[in-house]
Design a protein around this nucleic acid. Sequence first.
DNA 1: GGCCTGACTTGTAAACACATGC
DNA 2: GCATGTGTTTACAAGTCAGGCC
Length: 581
Amino acid sequence: MKTCLRFISRFIYISAERNKVASFVSSVRYYNAAAAKTLSDCRWEEGKSSDTQKWSSLEHKGPYFPPEYEPLPDNICFNYDGQPVKLSPVTEEIATFYAKMLDHEYTSKEVFQNNFFCDWREEMTKEERKLIKTLSKCDFSQIHKYFVEKSEERKNMTKEEKQVLKEEASRLMEEYGYCLLDGHREKIGNFKLEPPGLFRGRGEHPKMGKLKKRIQPEDVTINCSQDSKIPAPPAGHRWKRVQHDNTVTWLASWLENIHGRPKYIMLNPSSKLKGEKDWQKYETARRLKMKVDSIRKQYRRDWTSREMKIRQRGVAIYFIDKLALRAGNEKDDESADTVGCCSLRVEHITLHRRLDAQEHVVEFDFLGKDSIRYYNKVPVEKQVFKNLKLFIKHKDPEDDLFDRITTVKLNKTLNESMPGLTAKVFRTFNASTTLQDQLNKLTTEGMTVEEKILSYNRANRAVAILCNHQRAAPKTFERSMQLLQEKVQSTLTHSALMLLEKKEKAVQRLGEQLKKLQLQETDREENKVIALGTSKLNYLDPRISVAWCKKHQVPIEKIYNKTQRDKFAWAIDMTDENFQF
DNA sequence: GGCCTGACTTGTAAACACATGC
DNA sequence: GCATGTGTTTACAAGTCAGGCC
């Protein structure tokens, strides 16, 4: 509650300051409203009441529909079995989806080809279906070439032509990109409906290549307030439904045809609604900080419970806490085979009594979210090791490691330890704690701004490694490293020359330049296969970074770009240099 | 308790825009 | 003025988790 009051008073303080600036008058009202609502959020946090109302008024223009299909020019032909075939517009459009992807490796995959061909044939006319029976006889090369040329043309457009497109895009943004929520103009996150195409999926997805159908107005549900101006559907069409549900935050929804799951149009992260939710998330993680010692004591006790399910739960929470694993909900067979903590199978771990001079080592090897490989060798407590041996006894490799628990049960237990606590809170808590600790450790007075930034990135990297945020090494990595090294070399040579000529000032300048380059080189090398963005945007309490910047006189722009500053505006406004997570 | 659905967050890749150096 | 490399933004897939139903 204390924090909450600080938050409110901070907002009021900001409001008072902003009052001085005419252009900020509207946002003052905005923040006052935010402060008022925060009070109710705090009550919610204490678990006293659940205020499910998200807005009082909501008005918008509805989603933007992608342009209709433009048929290919007559000289561009699809060939079947060596013969040109004029396809019906529907069939032709789907052929273009495939043709555009020919450069991608996945079009060579059997699953992709089969799914595509199967769905394509379903959309064909009777005659087309009768003729086109084998994908290997289909020749999309002309269509492919046509689109490659088109994209070249786009790249080679004149400045003026590009300007026209830019203006068109910003007009669209003006018209569809914002809504009016409780009287405030808020940016929408994804106002454009997803265009039709072929589903790709990540990893070995069984549905790759399937046709993602064009969304019609008749598929779309609109959510807005009753007394608002209801968005008009495209001419000749109607909406599936118009509803006025203020307990949800979305503006429009539809069912995607690949999995039959709903998709939504929602607000941009810079919006008040999302910002407050984000703030709440970090406050929950900070409450865990207060509680984590007793939770850790409890799960350690659980390791020796007489009940198998309690032992399993104890070990699972330990993994979630120690390794920042995701919860691991059950998945259907119609998606890639990936797992998280609760869905780990026996085959995903190997137990080593001794390994590389360490005792009781668990070797993890599995595909997690987005089919990113998690590989880690971790020494664990002896009792955990014993338990794991017990859990895998008499089981086959494809059996569940934790067969007596589910994410629902695990989260229920966590919630009993602390209201609002779920598995994912540990990730936020551990990520933010790691950043704070690393920043405290790695920053010293007297560092240059560049050195401080290297420290910051190293702290950020420690978190990314903990959360297993990997990326493919950039295609241009080797080349760009080489260029940087050449630059370092030439600066070195230049310095030496200046030294000979006794030009002290020049030597000093070059020395500074060299240091900057070397820092940049180290940073880039260390970052080769690590993605920093995900943790920065989703796991690290922005107040840690803001306070660090203020304390060490590092401009916030060095840490957060424009979009990130918009998203974290609340933190930038409310945090002073003394904030610690 | 298990299953299903809906709403919301988290995640990477690719497209795009822009700065930089020649 | 152009090519190139890099940072930013967008797209959309794939998670988490709560709640309702049987």
